[in-house]
Nucleic acid binder design. Structure first.
Lengths: 192, 192, 192, 192
DNA sequence: AATGAATGAGGTTTCATTCAT
DNA sequence: TATGAATGAAACCTCATTCAT
């Protein structure tokens, strides 16, 4: 049963099959499962992803793209009166996005893969947060600080919020807590 | 070549051998390597650690103990005039401690093991930080907040600082940045 | 169904199983076949022969040993009046020995293995022939020549005789032809 | 990028590409490498050579042709006063020819291919040697013997000489040794 | 005739874990 | 309690060959 496809299409089928399985079963997925789900042969898998981690990297890229689609930060120079609520929206979106794909999240960001294939520092939500901080500073709404370093720290907080929620903590509570933390760090005069 | 030892001694030999190897070679270490280093037989290993993760858990416990030895937080009720510098000392100690055992850190906290065997929320440095926050609040030096949740968030920041330093960022710079963040969050009136 | 054996015994079982299969089916044999025949598990095979060629090398050694058992050259210094018939006996023994294990011979000496794992020059029948030549020369029965080089050439002839016989040529005829050739080369005054 | 060629030209391109690669990298060469080098598609390869061994057979034929070009034996009935030096020339030419394409030689004559696709007995240098022996006998210069069988034996010696040289033995020495052996076998009264 | 994506059996190797001794 | 041989599922990967286009 040989189906000939354009390489991009075939690759896409494999990636989507893998995403489906990883979302459902987490790290237990094997090459064999993926090709079964994708209706392809083993050799075909290795044509597109010579090493398993290559697949995970592709999935990570897609996940970032999906996130960017879901949450677009205010454009630089935007007249945003309410920077505080922007922060809250961000945290909320991030936590919900992460919760919506727990298992996949664990595979991509809490596994050996994550240390074998480190991310560029400006990739994904961290880079986005950095951009947001720069915009807020340019607008005079955020306190001065190293945007990149602060972004990595505050992203760690958001990430932790998502992990807490995934572990059963109350979603709104952790979101509000994290958002408050971000406000205190970024917004001058934000009193406890 | 059978060496009879008290069970605790035998177990200790194995753990220490494993620590040595994990510190040097990270995640590549196998049961076989450990028993070779420890001078024990494979079956003996599994008597003490029925599955591999049990060994890692034991090592994690020891690592926490070592950390507690190295950094003791101010006792509750202590008269600490300088809570800000307490925070800085903590961040610094934590980053240095983590850097001193990078490979081991990666295995314990950035690998599949970490998600297979989640930590109790109050374990290790997080619990310590929670205690510290409560003490600061009791002394009226820290702003009111949920100590446990805030501890988990701020620990995430410290952890990120250590990872940044491990990735080659300037140690003092990331420490200072993280300490500043902790101050802003905890100390009322800490202006940017 | 776990059978615990002394390592040598288990290794022997595997080698013997492999020999049986190689003799019967030639180069088509796979690890899986061998372990099935030997009643062992795949992992057991690789404990003893980390690489397939290691197995073939072991079999080659055994084959040489078996040959040495079957044909012992005259001891150095022996009073052998009839060096010519010694040569004939040698050729005949060699051809018959080779014919008795054609398939195995092909695998060991006419396959990629042979070039991947070259033989020491004095190994097996070549070394034996060298010894024989030296003995004949010491007895004044053989013409002077480089014993090692000549041995390698005359062994090539014997080998070719065996291959011819394996290919269907008349056994006695090729043996007599090869023996005559050896005589002409080694025995002074042997007229055509 | 489809290039239309006369079938013979296309086939020739493939064979030449394969020869180049086999000469350089020996048995590691894959169909994929060959078509890349030849600028053809995989399917095209199999149009001309339905199985890989067909390619090797074609190359073997070309190698024989090249050899015949390089070394032409004295025509039957030629007046060759110096049959001994003819033998020496032959050995020398053969060893040098073989050395000039070691890797290719190994693939063609010391690999599984050689046993999967046996040669006709009169092919190549063996047949040539047979012809030479017949000519020498016709001229009364060589002793009587079965020309075909003797040719196969003496060719084995030449082959071994080439292998020795390829393994690092002194070229002139092994050539002289082999030539002397051929003389002793073929030329009556050639004393040691 | 040409292309190159797809196939899938084959093969090597690893290693946590088991269990006979 | 200790030993270490044995297990076997997995994982990874290759590559000659096929065949839809």
């Amino acid at each position: 049963m040989r189906r000939r496809l354009a390489p991009e299409d075939r690759q896409l089928e494999i990636v989507e099959a893998a995403e489906r399985l990883l979302a459902a079963r987490g790290a237990q997925v094997r090459v064999e499962d993926v090709v079964a789900e994708a209706g392809a042969a083993k050799g075909t898998f290795f044509r597109y992803f010579p090493v398993w981690d290559d697949l995970l990297e592709a999935i990570r890229r897609r996940t970032f793209a999906r996130w960017t689609e879901r949450y677009a930060p205010p454009a630089a120079g935007a007249e945003t009166a309410a920077w505080s609520s922007t922060l809250e929206t961000l945290v909320q979106a991030f936590v919900d996005f992460t919760l919506s794909q727990r298992q996949l999240h664990a595979v991509l960001f809490h596994s050996d893969f994550a240390s074998r294939r480190p991310l560029a520092p400006q990739a994904g939500a961290v880079g986005q947060l950095e951009t947001l901080i720069r915009a807020g500073q340019a607008a005079g709404a955020f306190a001065p600080c190293d945007p990149r370093l602060t972004a990595s720290y505050l992203f760690a907080v958001m990430h932790e919020a998502a992990d807490q929620a995934a572990d059963g903590a109350d979603r709104s509570y952790v979101i509000e807590g994290a958002a408050a933390l971000l406000r205190r760090v970024l917004v001058p005069g934000d009193a406890p």
